[in-house]
């Protein structure tokens, strides 16, 4: 089996055999931040716990890049996803350009997002539409 690394340290971890995005929920102010950092970035509390992020959200805003960026080939759809806990997460959205709409519902997928030249598989996440026809500008 080839070597695997997570694309950003601490962004994902394995829980019950599944890779999940892990953030910090603050027990004092109640806000969830992602990626996790030392203290709550909202209130500086140390009283934070690692929690899995919600796996579905709505597209706040997106754009479609038509040139290659790093290991990614165009078109690259990137968007800000608003999660039910109030956290806004950036991620790529694997969808057809014509089906993209602000406010559409998306769900997260985790897995290999690119492979290095030495065969190392880089693990990350992206979003896919929940169903066609949701949302709208």
């Amino acid at each position: 089996m080839s070597k695997q690394v997570v694309f950003y340290p601490g962004a994902l971890e394995e829980r019950d055999g599944k890779l999940v995005q892990m953030g910090h929920k603050c027990k004092d102010c109640g806000k969830t931040s992602y990626p996790a950092v030392e203290l709550c970035p909202f209130c500086s509390s140390e009283n934070v716990e690692r929690v899995p992020l919600s796996t579905t959200g709505t597209v706040f805003s997106y754009s479609i890049t038509r040139v290659p960026v790093g290991p990614f080939k165009p078109p690259i759809i990137g968007g800000y996803i608003d999660l039910p806990e109030g956290t806004r997460v950036f991620g790529q959205i694997h969808a057809k350009a014509e089906e993209m709409k602000t406010g559409m519902k998306v769900k997260v997928r985790t897995g290999v997002i690119w492979t290095e030249k030495d065969g190392t598989e880089v693990i990350g996440y992206h979003y896919v539409p929940c169903e066609t026809g949701s949302g709208g500008a």
Binding site: P35, Y62, S63, T65, I76, G78, F90, I113
Partner: peptide, 26 residues
């Protein structure tokens, strides 16, 4: 395009043009 070294969003292909494209769409 200038990438932002070590940035989570940068690693997922967020660039300055793609950020400001969102602003244009808004």
């Amino acid at each position: 395009l200038l990438a932002i070294e070590g940035d989570l969003q940068g690693k997922l292909a967020l660039t300055m043009p793609s950020f400001f494209a969102k602003l244009c769409n808004r």
